[in-house]
């Protein structure tokens, strides 16, 4: 009976597929998240056009009792800009990962910071969008559109927030001790998550903003 030799760090443990455990787990997580966002998006689409009172996403509405008119509430040009920023962040993420893989300590920090900044910018756009909607008279309590819109995009925003915190954590580690090529898996996991959150936004932007 021979003992298995010492191992240092769990990256060197035997795995059946040769992949890091976390790589498999994050794919399972992403699969699960597809059902999560799928349910939220389905609810939005089922409730589309069923709101009894406005404001509505794509058409103006006049309140019959007060005579007050609400314009169509979604601002597609502004959200197109924030969508562009979020899509670019995926490019920065790829560059950050590539920098860590080739051991480029300078550009790994630059691109990680750029990704986090782009994510934060997207969140800033969302905060602006949410507050302006509230000023225009749409809250989660107003109508079915308000409930399903705020909760769907709010959960997406929460995912972006978690991603930004993850990126800042990686950046912090990079400044403290440097991310080596052996740490690429950590950036890879964050990148998979980040791209997934981006893809979800493409679905949300298309289904909710672009298709009227």
């Amino acid at each position: 009976m021979t003992a298995i030799p010492h191992e240092h760090g769990h990256a060197h443990h035997y795995t059946t597929t040769g992949l890091d455990h976390r790589k498999i787990a994050i794919w399972a997580f992403i699969g699960s998240e597809c059902l999560f966002f799928g349910s939220l998006i389905s609810t939005y689409l089922i409730y589309k056009g069923r709101s009894v009172v406005g404001p509505f996403p794509h058409e103006a509405w006049t309140n019959p009792s007060t005579g007050q008119t609400f314009p169509a509430i979604l601002d597609i040009p502004v959200t197109s800009a924030s969508t562009f920023v979020l899509l670019m962040s995926s490019l920065f993420m790829v560059l950050a990962h590539a920098s860590v893989v080739r051991g480029d300590r300078k550009y790994s920090k630059i691109w990680l910071a750029a990704t986090a900044l782009a994510g934060a910018t997207f969140l800033g756009f969302q905060a602006f969008e949410f507050t302006s909607f509230v000023h225009e008279g749409l809250t989660p309590r107003t109508n079915l559109f308000g409930s399903s819109f705020f909760i769907l995009t709010g959960f997406h925003g929460a995912h972006v927030t978690a991603g930004v915190i993850w990126l800042i954590t990686l950046l912090f580690i990079d400044f403290r001790r440097g991310l080596r090529p052996a740490d690429a898996i950590n950036v890879d996991l964050c990148a998979l998550y980040w791209h997934f959150v981006d893809v979800v936004w493409i679905a949300i932007f298309t289904l909710i903003y672009l298709i009227q």
């Binding site: 709101s51 009894v52 079915l144």
Partner: peptide, 26 residues
């Protein structure tokens, strides 16, 4: 995830007054 979404809607309806299950809101 599906029940999580359904229960989240109910939780938001009960605690924060959203309309996911409010029939009068459509």
């Amino acid at each position: 995830p599906i029940i999580t979404v359904a229960v989240t809607f109910l939780m938001l309806d009960r605690f924060f007054g959203t309309n996911f299950y409010t029939i009068t809101a459509g």
